Simulated scan of single mutants.
Amino acid sequence: MTSIASDIDVPRGAEGRAKPAIRLDLGRLAAHLMLLAFVVVWTIPTVGLLVSSIRDKDQLAVSGWWTALTPSVSTGASRVGLPADAVHENGKYVIRGNLLGSDTNKTVQSFGTTNADVSAAQAGASLPMRDGGTITVETSGEYQWVSDTPFTHTAGPRIYYTAGIAPRFTLENYASVINANGIGRAFINSFTVTVPSTIIPILIAAFAAYALAWMRFPGRGWIVALVVGLLVVPLQMSLIPLLRLYNGVATTFGTESKTYLGIWLAHTAFGLPLAIYLLRNYMAGLPKEIMESARMDGASHFKIFTTMVLPLSFPALASFSIFQFLWVWNDLLVALVFLGAQDDKLVLTGKLVNLLGSRGDKWEILTAGAFITMIVPLLVFFSLQRYFVRGLLAGSVK
């Protein structure tokens, strides 16, 4: 019995040991909830952009995406017919028509003869006209202006109305963007700019990172410090000096300044500091024993770099590739500076800006165009995402 009692007394100590496990579970739960909150916060704008891109452009102009499933209200005005459109029926003169035209997605809620009193009468009611007679407007937009005497007005008076717009979803916005003149060429131009601007800095940075990680030479520490310092240099500060330098070189050799080579070199210069920093930290964390064994076997630095370091550094290379590809693909400033607004070299972001117009009020073009530009970056990200976190963390905490 004593042994049984002592065994029963053990759980009090076990409870004490279980408390840290409970706290750990609560901590994990809090972390998961926090992560879920961040996902929701970042997802809501994307969902709003997607819903807006498939809404009718008239509804998009008057209400937010969160009202997409509820009818929206808009105001409008239409002129009624002229005396020549009148017919004589049962001793009265009648002019008929439709305020909404061929738009069957709207229903008239109220109407009036002035903009200040657009709700003077509800749909289906009658309202006196200043030119004589009364007008009746139905919810479908059909109107009937009836007068006891012939009409004498010279211009059709305006009827102001409020109309309810039923929810409508369409792919017309995407069709407008895809079928726009020059959009296909702009898509190809974006690839022409982005692919070399991603590959060139990776190649240069990989060699530089290996040298800074495994080769011993004077001034190596200063170069690493310089690379870290360049990470904080704003693009806008270095853009104009870099452009002037490139234009000077182009003038010296008598070549055109607005070329793809210029923008490739610009993106390479802007991307190299991050690439070298990320890859150098990753390569410095590779097992030292492997390098020493290879050197003892007589392998040169180039042989070690190509056969051992590059394959092992693929996660870090993939991480930087995603960063660089997304940045160059979504770039507009550098493209306009180094390529200009030439139609034959305009990138996709620049073409979408042109489609928006000078006032930027074509929201349907903006929302649909945003999702079209996201297709390629999403494919790149999901194809390399398994290497992304591993390479990013390994290259940033060494």
Rank of each mutant, 00 (worst) to 15 (best):
V232W: 06
L50N: 07
V380N: 03
Y246W: 15
A166N: 13
A284G: 10
L333C: 01
D117H: 15
G248N: 14
H32V: 04
V137T: 02
V376S: 00
Y387D: 06
V380L: 07
L50E: 05
L333H: 03
T373K: 03
Q385G: 00
R185K: 14
A394D: 06
I276M: 13
A21E: 02
I204K: 07
N354A: 12
L100W: 04
R17Y: 08
S74L: 07
L366Q: 14
V41P: 09
L348E: 01
H153N: 01
F253A: 02
E138S: 11
A370W: 03
A269I: 15
L355A: 08
S74C: 00
P287M: 10
G298D: 00
L35Q: 10
L384C: 03
T152S: 08
Q324H: 01
S3R: 15
Q385W: 00
I188Y: 07
L49R: 02
V337Q: 12
V51E: 06
K92F: 07
G27M: 11
G48H: 04
I199T: 05
T75F: 10
I276D: 10
L332G: 06
S110V: 15
I188A: 09
V193F: 05
A166D: 11
L33P: 10
F382Q: 00
V51F: 10
R185P: 00
P167G: 05
H301L: 07
W327Q: 09
I365T: 10
P20K: 03
A205W: 02
M1R: 14
V146Q: 09
F338E: 04
A335Y: 04
A394I: 00
A86M: 13
A266E: 09
S3G: 10
Q385A: 03
G262T: 15
W145H: 15
F388L: 11
M34T: 14
S257G: 04
E256N: 08
L317V: 15
L279E: 05
L243G: 02
T349C: 09
S6E: 13
M291H: 15
T154L: 13
V47Y: 08
R23S: 09
G340P: 03
V118F: 15
Y160V: 14
T113Q: 12
I95M: 12
A341P: 02
P71I: 04
P157R: 14
S358H: 04
M374T: 15
E289A: 13
M215N: 03
P167E: 05
D131T: 14
V328H: 08
H88D: 14
I135R: 12
G360S: 06
W214V: 06
A316G: 11
L99E: 04
I322F: 00
G16A: 06
G81R: 06
K92P: 03
S72V: 15
I199M: 06
A275T: 15
A341H: 10
G27V: 08
T307V: 07
N281T: 05
L333K: 02
W66V: 08
P157W: 13
D344Y: 05
F253P: 02
L378K: 01
V39P: 11
